[in-house]
């Protein structure tokens, strides 16, 4: 997928960087809304160097958990700690998130990249260079001047992932980024994610796609009704899940 002009992005992804903000810990994390406890006392520690996949049935609290970890919403109780401390400005700048439905500005493809980079403190020239290289890396150079919203679903999501990675995050949260994509587009996104992971970017991915989870995961967090039902190495989780609900989920049986 990357084309020949993706120099900077390729270089960036070839460098394995030590993490300055991990581990990420959730301590007795609780989120309540409308009198319901949607996240129910989650304790979790995510370390650098492995790809974490979050799974669970609808309503398990996966997206909420990601938003809490990323700092988009405040917990009702408990805390999210980065290297033992609450997130500060530096920590917030070293993480990025890709949403299930890519939220693209009503601007051109390159302007979407440029906007995100400028917002994160890159100079005009740096933003231009990075945008060009990351668009090339994502195979979107030919679309640079087109309105972002006329791209196909797969291209839009590639743009969203490229935009997030162009900021150089140490942690990349992805909330079902391929949920509505065809297999080819899905593999395209996965290729970018895998390369980012190989360069040292911590991946925290939500998916319902068990095949995708098997392809990507080093470790799996299985949520059920706002609690961590299982948290294990991927091989263990898929071969011998320690939870009956996780086993039922993997086998495609309904988990209520």
């Amino acid at each position: 997928m990357p084309d020949a002009t993706a120099g900077f992005a390729e270089q960036a992804l070839d460098v394995r960087r030590p993490s300055a903000i991990l581990p990420l810990e959730a301590r007795n994390l609780v989120f309540e809304a409308g009198g319901r406890r949607l996240i129910d006392g989650i304790d979790l520690r995510l370390d650098a160097g492995c790809r974490t996949v979050v799974m669970g049935p609808n309503g398990a609290g996966k997206s909420l958990l990601l938003r809490l970890l990323h700092g988009l919403i405040e917990p009702s109780a408990g805390s999210v700690l980065w290297q033992g401390k609450p997130a500060d400005r530096t920590v917030r700048r070293r993480q990025a998130m890709v949403f299930q439905r890519p939220v693209l500005l009503r601007r051109s493809v390159s302007a979407n990249m440029h906007h995100a980079l400028r917002a994160n403190g890159f100079s005009r020239q740096e933003a231009r260079d990075r945008a060009r290289d990351w668009l090339a890396y994502a195979g979107l150079s030919g679309f640079a001047d087109q309105p972002a919203r006329v791209l196909s679903g797969g291209e839009q999501q590639r743009l969203a992932v490229a935009r997030a990675l162009s900021l150089g995050p140490e942690v990349l949260f992805l909330d079902e980024p391929t949920a509505s994509l065809d297999p080819a587009s899905t593999l395209g996104i996965e290729e970018i994610i895998q390369k980012a992971a190989a360069s040292g970017t911590k991946i925290v991915l939500i998916t319902h796609d068990i095949g995708q989870a098997r392809r990507i995961a080093d470790e799996v967090v299985f949520l059920y009704r706002g609690r961590v039902e299982a948290f294990d190495q991927a091989l263990c989780f898929f071969d011998a899940p320690g939870s009956a609900k996780a086993r039922a989920f993997i086998e495609g049986r309904i988990v209520l």
Binding site: H70, A96, F99, V103, L105
Partner: peptide, 16 residues
């Protein structure tokens, strides 16, 4: 409503 989470994720606040 549409942009809120994305903009906050990108670190944008207030006037920006």
């Amino acid at each position: 409503t549409e942009y809120d989470e994305q903009l906050r994720s990108l670190g944008l606040r207030g006037i920006r």
